[in-house]
Amino acid sequence: MSPAWYERDERFIPARHQPALLMDLALSREVDSHALLRGTRLFLEDVLKAPLDLSPEQFLRLIANAQDCLDAPDTAFLLGQQLLPGHYGPASQALEHAANLGQALDILVGERQVLSPLLVPRLKLDGEHAYLYWLDPWGSGEARRFLVEMSQCAVQSMSRWLSGERLPWRFLFSHERPEHLEQYQAHLGMALHFGCRIDVMVLPREHLLRPWPRASATVCQAALAEGRRERTLAGREHGLLDRVEELCAARLRAMPDLDSLAAELALSPATLKRKLKKHGSSYQALQDGARLHAALYLVWARGYDNEAVAERLAFHDAPNFRRAFRRWTGLVPSVLRGWLEA
C-alpha cells in the first residue's frame, strides 16, 4: 500500500524553503511583517527561531498577503527566478547537478512535494516535444494565476541558468491575456499563448539531452536516494488531489467510479467526497480535468480529428466528444487543432 497523502490544512512545507524567499522579497520592499503574516497564524520571530512547517492553506494566505502589500505585477516573476534549483536539501542538490534538462524535469516531477509544493508539475513526452503542465492540487482559487506565473518562470529561469543557454520554451496559460503582458514578455519571452484551458510549457525535445556543465551523476544519484529516504521516514507524500488525479489519468479509457476510487484510497465514498470538496474540487471535476488534458494534447499536439480522439478516450462517438469538449472549454476542438505547429 502506498503511503498516505497530505491535505490542505496539514503542515509540511518548511518555512525556510519557498515561504522564506517570499518573505525576504516582501520585507526587502519595506512591507510590514504584521501585514504580511496577517491571518496566517505565524509570527516572524517563530519563523526565524525554530524549524517550522506551513500548510498549503497558510502558504496560500501568505502569497495573497504579499500580493496585496507589494501591489506590483512582477512579484510572481521575481520570486519565480529565485525558486529553482533552490536550497531545499537533497532535491535541490539533485537538480543542480542533473545531467541535462530531461533529468532535471524528471527530478522536478519526482520531488515535486519539496520543489513545487503548491502546484503539481506533470511531464509528457512525445517524439517532438516535451510538455510540462501544472495542476492545482489545493484549490488555490485566485492565487492560481500567481502560482502559474511563478512556476513557469521558475523552470524557465532554472533551465537558462543551469544550461547556460536560452531555450526556446513556449508558454501556454489557462487564463486570458493579462493587463501586465510586458512582465510576461520581459521575463518569459514572446512565445506566449493565453486562454488555453491548461497551463503548460513546451520545448522541442532535442534540448532535453544536451549535457549541462555542472552535471555530476554521483551527486545527483546520492541526493535522490537521500530524498527518497526522507520521504519514507515521513510515511506519506503528495496531496490528495494529486493522488486522485494520477489515478484518473492512468485510466482514461475506463475511469474508476467514486466508490472504487474511495475503496482504493481506503476511504468511504462520503468521506472522499467531503475531502475533495474541502480542496475546492469534486470527483466529476477531476475526471473531466484528466480527460480534458488528454484531449487537448491529442488535438493540439497530435492534430487528431474528433473521431480519433473519441476513440482514444472511449467516448461513444465524435459528436459526443465534441459536446463534452465544448462543455469543458467553451470552444469546439477544431479551433485549436494544429496551432502548436503554426
Partner: peptide, 14 residues
C-alpha cells in the same frame, strides 16, 4: 536623455 523625453520602467530590467 534630452529634456522632453520620457523614461518609464516597463518590466524587470526593461
Amino acid at each position: 536623455l534630452r529634456h522632453g523625453d520620457l523614461l518609464c520602467r516597463l518590466a524587470g530590467d526593461r
